[in-house]
Amino acid sequence: MQIKRVGVIGGGQLAWMMAPPAQALGIELVIQTPSFDDPAVAIAADTVIAPIDDADATKELARRCDLITFENEFVDLAALFPLAASGVCFRPRLEALSPLLDKYHQRCYLEKLGIPQPEFALPSSPKHIKFPVVLKTRRHGYDGQGTFIIKDSETLQQKLATLHKLSEVLLEEFIPFERELAVMAARSIDGNVMTFPIVETQQENQVCRRAIAPAAISSTVAQEIEAIARTLMTSLQAVGVFGIELFLTQDQKVLVNEIAPRTHNSGHFTIDACVTSQFEQHLRAICDLPLGSSALTCGGAVMVNLLGYEYAQDEYIEKRAQISQVPHARVHWYGKHESRPGRKLGHVTVLIDQFHPEAAQAIAQKIESLWYPQLNK
């Protein structure tokens, strides 16, 4: 069956960035999102305005499209299973999402597969995890929200006392990593798994500030990460693109941090720097089209997130114009009219002919000096 209309649960920038490849592939997007102001509403062929965890709205979304995919994972999965049983097509399938949406369940699933990861435990049975520890909310945490580094037992008890339910959090071993890495992996309906170039991600306040492709890692580390991606995507029988975030320790051990069952911020560089973007690849996978090449079309790339640093109604046209003058810079603005600290307003990708990590870092610093006023004081 030729897929002509794809429903997307979520109307943020990830759905918005699906629009150009969807148009090129002859696919219309139908969006379920809670607000007319969300970025993807402007590019949708049709829109269902409703919370993304509203199963009745998703039923209406299904009526308007051929299949449904996800822009984010903040859905009520239990409420969607009856829709799947009635014949609604979800890609990735709900069974592939089920072990991943709760971070504790995700850890248990990785443990079952034998995939290396930090030690973890529930607060009620903390095992032998030593301080400092990482306290995480099990659902709905992103961009550092719901993640806390706890240095001692007293602070942990104080933090736990503020929670309504201990069952809402888990504890993880704190990893003093050498660097953070990420890889976007795609799997087709027939089981073909492809990975994009592995990137180094650099976080500040647990929010991704920049991604550098390709990561300066050994071939052994790269092969291990690609094997992890293949194992995970095959085990889940996933269809579409998933983001896998990892730690690389000082002794070159690879540990999985988190898995996002969707396109991901760390893969935005692929729009400008790869033969096929992560968004086109996702559409190709879910629509049963041949996967495209994931190869770089340049020596490397630097992606810098344009994060809000103030509360304002501003589209920062002058700053964006300055950044666009940086050689080989491509500015992507998400159409959000309201800024607040930490909000992702856009991103910039700078293409590099001959890749050197030091040069990539200098480019990132140049972009950020133009964007963040506090860096110029």
Rank of each mutant, 00 (worst) to 15 (best):
E154A: 14
E154I: 14
T155R: 15
L156Y: 14
Q158H: 13
L160A: 01
T162K: 10
L163T: 07
L166V: 00
L166M: 08
L166I: 00
E168F: 06
L171P: 12
E172S: 08
F174R: 10
F174Q: 10
F177C: 09
F177P: 04
E178T: 02
L181H: 14
L181D: 13
L181T: 13
L181E: 13
A182L: 08
V183T: 06
V183H: 08
V183G: 09
M184A: 10
A185F: 04
A185H: 02
R187T: 03
R187P: 01
S188L: 03
S188T: 07
S188W: 02
I189A: 15
G191R: 04
N192C: 12
N192W: 02
V193M: 02
M194I: 14
T195E: 12
F196W: 05
I198E: 07
E200I: 03
T201A: 02
T201K: 02
Q203Y: 02
E204P: 00
E204N: 01
N205S: 09
V207C: 05
C208H: 04
R209F: 04
R209E: 04
R210T: 13
A211C: 15
A211L: 05
A213D: 02
A213K: 04
A213E: 01
P214V: 05
P214K: 11
P214T: 07
S219G: 04
T220S: 10
V221N: 06
V221I: 15
E224N: 08
I225T: 05
I225L: 14
E226T: 08
T234I: 06
S235I: 03
L236I: 03
A238E: 13
V239T: 15
V239G: 06
G240E: 12
V241G: 02
F242K: 01
G243A: 08
G243C: 12
I244L: 06
E245W: 10
Q250V: 12
D251K: 11
D251E: 12
K253M: 11
V254G: 09
L255K: 12
L255V: 06
V256E: 01
V256M: 04
N257H: 04
E258Q: 07
I259H: 09
I259F: 02
P261F: 03
R262G: 06
H268P: 06
H268K: 06
T270F: 00
I271H: 00
D272C: 07
D272S: 12
A273M: 10
S277L: 00
Q278D: 01
E280N: 10
